[in-house]
Design a protein around this nucleic acid. Structure first.
Length: 289
DNA sequence: CACACGTGGAA
DNA sequence: TTTCCAAGTGT
């Protein structure tokens, strides 16, 4: 094959970033929190919040006792705040149903809110050393190039992606290999300008041997943000994050001029459980009034 | 399977 | 300035 596991593991041992959730004293809970925060969010923005969270809520039962509003406020502007709510719900499930211990098997992890195919395996591998394929966007890209010789990964397919990586796993140190493969995609085999001169598997890379062909799959849909409901919801939530007291609707009305879109977004936030209405008709983060 | 879901920094 | 993209999940 065109990707030697030991070469990658050696490179990782030598040059891996010193991230707090990778340290030997990090708990499984710390790993889980990091994985949720890192979903679609860069390491640099996660790190400071992760430290705050682990200091404030060192184990699942501690966070389980917090209100949803406290959790959403602590989440700050990491984005996709539904993740915070789901992590809170997962903490409550772990505290009450799993004796305050983060589960170590993929199927039990998958049953928790906010934990999908990637995160379940990431926790099983990185917190418990299990030999399971861990496939994120970095791994998909690195494997597409180094193994398949393509310019980039095609559309995701959980079943196929897991199988593609499963066959690469070494018998020993599979979890370290998985971390190394992710690291390779994150810092060397990047989406925009891969740093091939620094790549530990440059000599055997199928993409190099293939003449560095351009990506030829279906075009990737780029997400719009300006003007979307996502932006309006963010503005609405930002007001509530900044206040202790519930606010009147007139205060929320100031964040966006289009009344129809504004009301639709406020409604969807209520439906999603990210906002609550008080008995007197004002609005606040959930669980605090 | 395609789409909605936040946010901010770099190219 | 605009576009791209960053350790995905749920419906």
């Amino acid at each position: 094959m065109s990707l030697d596991a030991q070469t990658l593991i050696d490179w990782f041992a030598d040059s891996a970033r010193d991230l707090p959730w990778r340290r030997s004293d990090c708990t499984a809970w710390g790993v889980l929190v990091s994985e949720i925060m890192l979903q679609q969010t860069p390491v640099a923005r996660v790190e400071p919040i992760w430290h705050e969270w682990l200091a404030r809520w060192p184990k699942p039962s501690a966070m389980a006792e917090a209100t949803q509003g406290e959790v959403l406020r602590a989440w700050g502007k990491l984005g996709y705040p539904r993740r915070a709510l789901r992590l809170h719900a997962a903490a409550q499930a772990i505290a009450t149903e799993h004796n305050d211990v983060v589960p170590d098997d993929v199927d039990t992890l998958l049953a928790l809110p906010g934990i999908g195919a990637y995160t379940a395996r990431a926790v099983a591998a990185f917190a418990y050393g299990q030999r399971v394929p861990v496939v994120d966007t970095n791994v998909r890209r690195a494997v597409a190039r180094a193994v398949h010789g393509a310019g980039d990964a095609g559309p995701p397919s959980t079943t196929k992606d897991l199988r593609d990586v499963e066959v690469l796993l070494p018998e020993d140190d599979a979890a370290v290999f998985s971390a190394a493969l992710m690291e390779l995609g994150a810092v060397v085999c990047t989406a925009r300008s891969p740093r091939c001169a620094d790549c530990p598997v440059f000599e055997t890379c199928a993409w190099q041997l293939n003449g560095r062909p351009a990506y030829d799959g279906p075009a990737k849909a780029v997400q719009k943000f300006a003007g979307t409901d996502r932006q309006v919801r963010g503005l609405l939530l930002d007001v509530l994050r900044g206040t202790v007291e519930p606010v009147d609707k007139t205060r929320l009305d100031r964040v966006w001029s289009d009344a129809g879109q504004r009301d639709r977004c406020l409604h969807s936030l209520l439906v999603d459980g990210l906002v609550e209405q008080t008995a007197d008709g004002r609005f606040a983060l959930p669980g605090e009034h």
